[in-house]
Design a binder for these strands. Structure first.
Lengths: 191, 191
DNA sequence: CCCTCGGTATACTGATCTGTGAAGTCCAGA
DNA sequence: TCTGGACTTCACAGATCAGTATACCGAGGG
């Protein structure tokens, strides 16, 4: 679903501009005219490629989700120690935060799009479930007992660090330390 | 600052309508015409009372912050055991979530108002600092060592539970359990 | 009695929003 | 050389946005 390849060169420029503008300024506050102008494309082309603003928003979130999952997956896969792999998403978050300093694009999107039938809700929920399932998978591989509860707690820590990011309270290090301690404690109970 | 008393009866009706509409539907998506109509007041009266939409938004956030702090403060004060007091804000969150199911109004507001000079940023940052300071205060009273780090971790847990709330992943119980375990472990190290 | 004050009612300005219509340009491939 | 498709250009519709202007109304107080 929603491969990048389905878009033309102009369509990809539109998507790139939409990613930056929607994330930095908010979805409702950014009009299609601005996205078209910023990507050097006419509004007609934008509508020919995406059909509507809602579909462009959905494509923006889908593309961002794809990039983020690729980063997390590769960070996890690079870990030799299965214990490190469990908290690898927090390392990925540190890297991700170098360019994204306005919190979670999906949480932000849900704040602006209250209609629960909007496709953005499905994308957002699926992303968080994916991360929780990844935590379960890694915790199981590391031999942690009760991986489901641990995974939920790690997810909350991850989302908390992400949500407090725009407030400049410097929470990521303390959060990562806590996540590591939790995993070590859980694995230590049995191993 | 921003006392409720400074508003007339019509002004308070406007503020009540604004609270509900801005939180449920988003700030940018809700126009002043709708707020005026919903509160049974003319747009002229709304502008006489609040001056501009930005100031109405600021009043909305300030009022919501006031109500939330009162709930948290009273929940903390009701605790006989100082150890329970540290995690009392999580009990308050459970109560708060009975009526607020769309996440943190301040995080949501920041998502829509990217201008860092907007007063909403000050209100949001002050609120989170206030909670962190409350955690520090309670953790110190409970005899926890290193209350600053513990407070940051509890803040992240709190914000994570709040941020994942609209995703219906049922995270609050596991988060509260973890917070209690953290506090007990910290206090147990010295006590 | 009259005057002020908070509110109502209604109409308006000028800007901006999403989305469409119609005609013209450019270029690759048959 | 012709054709088809992607793109541009420009104009426009219809709605909605924040905010203002003008006139009116009723109650309370001097």
């Amino acid at each position: 679903m929603s491969e990048v390849r389905q878009f033309s060169a102009a369509g990809r420029r539109v998507l790139a501009a939409a990613e930056e503008l929607f994330y930095e300024r908010g979805i409702t506050a950014v009009g299609v005219d601005l996205v078209a102008e910023r990507s050097g494309v006419t509004k007609r082309t934008l509508y020919n490629q995406f059909g509507s603003k809602d579909q462009l928003v959905t494509a923006y979130l889908g593309e961002r989700d794809r990039r983020w999952r690729a980063l997390v997956r590769s960070t996890v896969d690079d870990c030799a120690d299965p214990l490190d792999a469990v908290t690898a998403p927090f390392e990925a978050l540190r890297e991700w935060s170098r360019t994204s300093t306005r919190g979670c694009a999906f949480v932000n999107a849900l704040a602006e799009l209250p209609d629960p039938d909007h496709p953005a809700h499905r994308v957002a929920t699926e992303q968080k479930r994916w991360l929780r399932d990844l935590f379960v998978e890694c915790a199981t591989a590391a031999g942690c007992p009760d991986p489901a509860i641990l995974a939920t707690q790690l997810l909350v820590l991850h989302e908390g660090a992400l949500a407090t990011q725009p407030l400049a309270l410097d929470t990521l290090s303390a959060t990562t330390d806590l996540a590591r301690a939790l995993v070590r404690a859980a694995a230590g109970e049995t191993g």
